[in-house]
Design a binder for these strands. Structure first.
Length: 681
DNA sequence: CACACTTTGTC
DNA sequence: ACAAAGTGT
């Protein structure tokens, strides 16, 4: 009945009906209008990649059919302004309440806060819930009430919290539909024709949708979980949980995963099954890393753009698109790396181990800017997840307080024999090496000519020689690091002399933009070896079609030249990035974020409270982009131009570690806070 | 066998 | 950085 008006349940990355607190709240309140708003342009540079959109499409269809079974359906809206669309839905349905579940990336924090403000102003009651994490980030603090800065400490605390994560909620039995007669759905288009063809094979391997996610969970817990510890060293993905895409879209409740896995843990502990227990601990730890990625994003909203430890801002990245392309196409000359990149290219999937291998190679050997790699992962992975990717790449790049050392280079040859001892993985993804004996499979450059001939391999022709030698890479890395420390020291001196932002400048927010906006880059960063004309514009990189990928690789291999001409590489692997405008002007402030999620009692957070205000932005933002910079800096949705320098000071202030990582740990919080204002540092 | 030195895993 | 495990003398 229309007495209280209906509730809108706003679905985002919580595409399930089970253990969905926002949905349950809506059902409890009466009639429900379930809404999904597709506004990818709001993601700016992080417009979802092809396979990710494929997943979303099917996940939504699945959700819609579940909702229909319960008595309603999903309203879908195509939008360029989510909040505006919400408002429209409110008006056309007469809704008086809005329920949604929390997200923790900075874009969502800002957008959701704005949604709350705008709808509240319209007299709509807005309530939001935790559906994505075991514990809310603001509930997990150290003894001093401050956020943790290392995973180990964070996870230890997590596992010893005084209260358990909430128990999963059951799905509603029935949903009373709200009146949507004046609120038609828009047809959402998630893929173009070319992409459709490329995506055709995905359905063979994956089944999006929340109930399929549950099946996958059950299968994993009753199967591979017990061997998880033993098998996690293999390149083969058959032993991983394969749950990450389900988790990304919230088809699966982490709380439920946690509960079920814990039950197994208790069981195996009682049986004295050590291997099983170890496996559970490891698996839970990987769940913990996902939690931690949200935690980091919440506490450090810029973590997908800026290194959390500031010295990396002075690292002289090798801006070499030829390297970048060779890496993407699996033509680096290191079989394990190349096999991984080909698998990613072809399937959108990569075992966690191999993700570490290829990204570490990217950063340490090729010394390409880590954000390019992160962006490529975002574009290509089926489970692309900004928070997790940012954490992973920062870890690899040595920019986390507990990350691995910067100057340690992992040798893909040795890792190859570790993770793929029989070369099966390499042979599967690098057919050109299929006939090479295992002895040489991970270092063909050492193989005798006769062996290569017998295997039909001509190095430099149908399989590349190593693009960079490991020894050369080590030397180059040492040079780069000493250059980095020098620049860092110089900058610190400049700061102390009050020469202020001369050195820091906006470069810190732009460690090196993705090639599409490279030309700006170059003025900011100490950059070496830039062989390409800076005027070139790059398309976004996404995955080429599965069917054509190998053909293309073979094609190009005959040319075997790593220095690819501009024309050649602009033969886009992909359609143009739909939108390069970014939500530059969206800003948030202390109040916004504090109220964004919680009520009053949160006072710890230095991070959020220091984000600058631009009062006008909320109003303007409904009209689209305000601060489009052609050529484009990286999307920065928070700082407004005017407040920019102010934060930089804060930044410089926060980032001081000169020697290695946070030797003086008491300072670690300061080191990690971007938004520190001058007087507080 | 004790000892230093190297290698490995950390998220 | 650091601890644990492995290797060499």
């Amino acid at each position: 009945m229309s007495g209280g008006g209906c509730s809108i349940v706003w679905f985002r990355r919580d595409l399930r009906i089970e253990d969905n607190p926002a949905l349950s709240a809506g059902v409890r309140a009466g009639a429900v209008v379930a809404v999904f708003i597709w506004a990818p342009e709001e993601e700016g540079q992080y417009y979802p990649g092809r396979v990710s959109r494929w997943w979303l499409k099917h996940s939504l269809a699945h959700l819609d059919s579940s909702l229909r079974n319960l008595g309603t359906h999903l309203i879908t809206k195509r939008s360029t302004d989510t909040v505006f669309s919400l408002l429209e839905v409110v008006k056309s349905t007469g809704a008086t309440q809005l329920f949604f579940n929390h997200l923790y990336d900075s874009l969502s924090l800002i957008r959701d806060h704005r949604a709350k403000e705008v709808l509240n102003a319209q007299g709509v009651t807005v309530r939001s819930f935790n559906a994505d994490l075991l514990y809310e980030p603001w509930d997990v603090n150290d003894a001093h009430g401050r956020p943790f800065t290392t995973f180990a400490a964070f996870w230890e605390r997590y596992l010893s919290m005084p209260y358990d994560p909430e128990s999963p909620l059951l799905p509603p039995k029935r949903i009373i539909p709200g009146d949507v007669s004046r609120c038609p759905s828009d047809t959402l288009v998630f893929e173009n024709e070319a992409e459709k063809a490329s995506n055709a094979l995905l359905a063979r391997a994956w089944s999006p949708g929340w109930s399929n996610a549950n099946k996958a969970l059950t299968a994993f817990i009753n199967g591979p979980l017990i061997e998880y510890s033993k098998n996690r060293r293999k390149a083969d993905s058959a032993t991983t949980s394969l749950l990450s895409p389900h988790l990304h879209f919230g088809e699966l409740s982490v709380k439920k995963v946690f509960h079920l896995v814990r039950i197994k843990q208790v069981l195996w502990a009682n049986e004295g099954n050590m291997a099983g227990e170890e496996s559970v601990n490891l698996f839970l730890k990987s769940i913990g890393l996902r939690e931690y990625s949200r935690y980091i994003c919440f506490n450090h909203p810029y973590s997908h753009e800026r290194p959390l430890l500031g010295h990396l801002k002075f690292f002289p990245w090798v801006v070499n698109e030829g390297y970048f392309k060779a890496w993407r196409q699996g033509r680096t000359g290191y079989p394990l790396v190349d096999a991984g990149m080909r698998e990613l290219w072809a399937t959108g999937w990569l075992h966690d181990r191999i993700r570490v291998v290829v990204s570490s190679f990217f950063v340490k050997v090729l010394q390409l800017p880590w954000r390019w790699g992160m962006k490529y992962f975002w574009d290509t992975l089926l489970d692309a997840d900004l928070e997790s990717d940012a954490l992973g790449w920062q870890y690899i790049s040595g920019t986390l307080p507990d990350g691995r050392e910067l100057d340690r280079i992992d040798n893909p040859q040795f890792e190859g024999y570790k993770f793929d001892p029989n070369g099966e993985y390499v042979r599967r993804w690098l057919p050109e090496l299929a006939r090479l004996p295992t002895e040489w499979i991970h270092h063909p450059w050492n193989a005798p000519e006769s062996v290569l001939q017998a295997a039909g391999i001509e190095l430099g022709s149908n399989y590349p020689l190593p693009i960079v030698g490991i020894d050369a890479a080590k030397n180059r890395l040492q040079e780069a690091l000493s250059e980095m420390w020098q620049l860092e020291a110089a900058s610190r001196v400049a700061m102390e002399n009050g020469t202020e932002e001369g050195l820091g400048d906006s470069s810190e927010s732009v460690p090196a933009a993705f090639p599409q906006d490279m030309q700006i880059e170059e003025t900011h960063e100490p950059v070496r070896n830039n062989p390409l004309p800076v005027s070139r514009r790059y398309q976004d990189q996404m995955v080429p079609s599965i069917t054509s990928s190998f053909v293309r690789v073979e094609d190009e291999e005959t040319t075997s030249d790593l220095r690819i001409s501009a024309e050649e590489s602009s033969r886009a692997e992909v359609p143009e990035n739909v939108n390069t405008q970014q939500n530059a002007g969206v800003t948030l402030n202390e109040r916004m974020l504090q109220t964004a999620h919680r009520s009053t009692h949160i006072h710890y957070n230095t991070t959020m409270e220091l984000i600058n205000v631009a009062e006008d932005s909320a109003v303007e933002s409904s009209s689209g982009t305000r601060r489009e910079r052609d050529g484009g800096l990286v999307p920065e949705w928070s700082p407004s131009a005017s407040s920019y320098s102010e934060q930089l000071v804060g930044d410089e202030n926060g980032i001081t570690s000169s020697s290695s990582y946070l030797q003086r740990h008491p300072q670690s919080h300061q080191l990690l806070n971007w938004r520190q204002l001058p007087q507080t540092g």
